[in-house]
Design a binder for these strands. Structure first.
Length: 797
DNA sequence: AGCACGCCGACT
DNA sequence: GTCGGCGTGCTC
């Protein structure tokens, strides 16, 4: 039998299957989806078996060296999904498969040198490395300058040393020491050994093995007592695999399905029907904030579980908070696995194995959870469908929504895209009946949508208010503090200020490796580059003219916090941004403190815009609504509207009525204006007109090609070649823009140029893009050239 | 990715 | 003459 293997060598000329003989005795184990170790040239590497056949067209097949899994880590569905993904995103098939398994399973093959002859026969210089009983690693030897490679090679040739390849798995299963009473306890314990008798009696009454740790804690005995009993053969110790439990000790209150509103009943019916008939549809659940989308999800999942099918729920990383997890754990208890970036590598591995072993039926997770190895999927839900974090911004540049639909078709199950502010792409598809639109227009319990005031900050300035809080916002803040109600203040910018400028000559401190201004960080009193990590001390004088009049411009959360304590000294403020939530669990701690009413104001960035649901929040303030509107991105208006709606949705979700103050310098812009009436439909119409005029998605599809090199002239010549090739190859109806310098024209001392393709129908596109890569393959391999190709990009830097 | 093969310059 | 530079190409 022959195994078709995708080898672990991420290059374009090895991005295909290689054939290997399956040794007779392994024919049962080696099946598609199993990882194997294979000889590849002179070395041993890892690979994924993607297929098993009877014969090969290749004549010199070598046998598989070893296998890493007894049970496949990739299902046949995931194998074909990987193929599709590699094709669609122009990535290596290998990269697609690695995406689907937890990082803990991404093994490295290490090269070791084993001593075969007597140590005295080796040259002096390399002897010290072979003194212990551990074989030294090749890489460590090479790094050591005292060791000559020549001598090692010589020793290998003479048969004194041997090179061996060791596969090292990063993820270890966690083991715990257990004890149990031996089957036939004939040995009697002396009457005087009270402790031992007590312990044995306890274990016998327990009737099952127990973890040594737990036993010691419960009985207050000493380790010695157990060891003695084990020696006597009365007890047996053994290792048992345990799951790391990231949520250990957290109790979830069970919740029952809620009574649905008429609207909820209307939208859930088509989903239940689709489940019933085991067919595939993509639904766009467009529900205003607070309309009870989650309850629709929960009851749909319930139906899938009833059918003995499984469910995947995707949630943006940022809103994958304990509150969110609580809602799913509360309804489905131990049937739920949670996957997000906050877990350690080992914890992720454990959650993933629960899925593989069918110990859970529901997965709640961020983007990559879409690859959960379920085999009988019943429903896929993508909450906050419009979130850009569902698109991976590095290779493979996939969109979770596309993967969801692929899997939905494969399993013949519904895919639900839910949002209060759908992406224009999805809403346009829903209107064209590619997706089925399910509208939820009212909040549950007939709660009113929050009232929104837009404050013209230019006016404020004219009337002499130079602070970052408008009069009305300040007034309402005071009012809430008096009434003991809570406020959420939103600012889309962390840190202290955005950039540092000299007031005399206008010089802006910028990174020496990237074309971007540095950001001031107050705690370290330093300037940092957010792209390459470069950091320098905050200058006291202007680098350009020597003036001491250096000032900060723009304000981040840190600065607002300072300002707040100045104007409202009585207010208790909790600040939430990447800087205050970096430590594990701090996110949760800050939120629950706010939930308990330990602060009047929650001040934060993006991360507080979603999922936050506390009854006492009656005021939401947006400090600078336009901060997103002026970035040069065709989606900036869409993002502004989405964010404003999302943030407004935090107010008045319970009995108390909510109010929203939006501060803006462009209050008449439709993306801000329309938040007042919460009119998505109107916004959609306005924005679609803009997209049509500017020829942007959803009217066209886009591809962004970024070319980078350390030499500017090379970048320009390659970019020009790329553009003229594309113009020649593609339809005339297709627009090829560029080449132009990227918005970020230099990162880490590499110059960057880009070109953009806008098309409607272009069957030759993928092929043409592949040809570009192939054409410059030499420059890419041996050096410095990089060509990144992003289909349907969300990021234009 | 590695590793070998192979074709040119500067040395014991 | 050979040692070693790294460009080129292959790995079932």
């Amino acid at each position: 039998m022959i195994a078709k293997v995708i080898v672990d060598v991420p290059t374009s000329n090895t991005d295909r299957v290689f054939d290997y003989d399956i040794p007779k005795e392994w024919e049962e184990v080696i099946q598609p989806g199993v990882r194997v170790v294979v000889p590849f040239g002179p070395r041993k590497i890892q690979g994924f078996v993607v297929d098993v056949t009877n014969d090969s067209t290749f004549h010199k097949t070598k046998p598989i060296d070893d296998f890493l899994d007894v049970v496949p880590v990739l299902t046949s569905e995931l194998l074909s999904l990987g193929e599709w993904l590699a094709d669609q995103t122009l990535c290596f098939q290998l990269s697609a498969y690695q995406l689907m398994i937890p990082a803990a399973l991404r093994t490295k093959v290490k090269k070791e040198l084993c001593l075969l002859a007597h140590i005295e026969t080796l040259p002096y210089s390399i002897r010290p490395h072979f003194q212990g009983d551990k074989s030294p690693l090749w890489n460590d030897l090479v790094k050591d300058k005292n060791v000559s490679l020549k001598e090692i090679q010589q020793a290998v040739k003479e048969g004194k040393l041997e090179v061996r390849y060791q596969v090292e798995e990063k993820g270890k299963k966690k083991m715990e020491r257990y004890v149990k009473v031996s089957e036939n306890t004939t040995c009697d314990i002396p009457t005087r050994a009270v402790k031992q008798r007590e312990l044995l009696a306890y274990l016998q009454s327990l009737g099952k093995p127990i973890a040594v740790q737990a036993l010691l804690q419960e009985t207050k005995m000493t380790r010695q007592t157990i060891t003695t009993l084990v020696k006597k053969g009365v007890l047996q110790e053994f290792d048992k695999e345990v799951y790391r439990d990231p949520l250990a000790g957290v109790e979830y209150e069970r919740t029952l399905p809620l009574e649905l509103t008429d609207q909820q009943r209307d939208v859930i019916q088509p989903i239940l029907d689709t489940l019933e008939t085991k067919s595939h549809y993509t639904f766009l659940l467009h529900g205003v904030t607070g309309s009870g989308k989650t309850e629709v999800y929960l009851q749909s999942i319930d139906k899938a579980l009833e059918q003995k099918r499984e469910a995947i729920v995707l949630v943006p990383e940022i809103s994958l908070t304990p509150q969110m997890v609580q809602r799913f754990k509360g309804r489905f208890g131990s049937k739920v696995a949670v996957l997000h970036s906050g877990l350690s590598m080992g914890e992720k591995y454990d959650e993933w194995r629960k899925i593989l072993r069918k110990e859970v039926q529901v997965v709640v997770g961020a983007r990559s959870a879409i690859f959960a190895p379920f085999t009988n999927l019943g429903i896929i839900i993508i909450d906050e469908e419009h979130e850009t974090s569902y698109k991976q911004e590095e290779n493979p540049r996939y969109h979770a929504r596309d993967v969801a639909i692929f899997r939905g078709k494969h399993h013949q199950c519904p895919v639900i895209l839910g949002s209060a502010t759908p992406s224009l792409e999805s809403y346009a598809r829903a209107r064209k009946n590619v997706y089925r639109l399910l509208p939820l227009t009212e909040r549950v319990h007939n709660r009113a949508m929050p009232e929104v005031h837009v404050v013209d900050m230019r006016e404020e300035l004219r009337s002499g208010n130079r602070s970052m809080f408008s009069y009305i916002l300040l007034e309402k803040l005071k009012d809430r503090i008096e009434k003991g109600e809570q406020t959420v203040l939103f600012l889309n910018r962390r840190g202290y200020s955005t950039f540092v400028m000299c007031r005399d000559c206008g010089y802006v401190a910028s990174c020496e490796h990237c074309d971007i201004s540095l950001t001031y960080h107050r705690t370290q009193n330093s300037l940092k580059c957010h792209y390459c990590g470069h950091e320098e001390k905050m200058p006291t004088k202007c680098d350009s003219c020597g003036s001491e009049h250096i000032r900060f411009f723009g304000s981040g959360t840190q600065k607002v916090e300072e300002e707040l304590t100045r104007v409202l000294p009585e207010a208790k403020v909790i600040r939430m941004d990447i800087d205050t939530t970096r430590r594990k669990g701090s996110h949760e701690r800050l939120l629950s403190a706010f939930g308990r009413g330990e602060a009047d104001i929650l001040l934060g960035t993006q991360m507080i815009a979603k999922g936050l649901d506390f009854p006492k929040i009656t005021l939401v303030g947006v400090l600078a609504a336009d901060s997103m509107l002026h970035i040069p991105d065709f989606r900036s208006a869409e993002r502004t509207f989405q964010l404003m709606e999302q943030v407004s949705g935090r107010a008045g979700r319970h009995d108390l009525k909510g109010e929203v103050i939006i501060q803006s310098y462009t209050p008449d812009h439709y993306s801000i204006e329309l938040v007042k009436s919460h009119d998505y439909e109107q916004f959609f119409q306005m924005e679609m007109t803009q997209r049509k005029v500017g020829l942007y998605p959803p009217y066209v599809f886009m591809v962004l090609i970024t070319i980078s090199h350390s030499e500017l002239t090379n970048v320009i010549t390659v970019s020009e070649k790329v553009v003229s090739f594309l113009r020649r190859e593609l339809f005339e109806s297709t627009t090829v823009l560029g080449p132009v310098a990227s918005p970020l024209a230099r990162i880490k001392d590499r110059y960057r140029y880009q070109c953009m393709i806008k098309y409607r129908n272009e069957p030759r596109l993928l092929e043409a893009l592949r040809e570009i890569r192939q054409h410059f393959i030499r420059e890419i391999n041996q050096g410095d050239l990089q060509i990144s190709i992003d289909l349907q990009p969300y990021l234009f830097t």
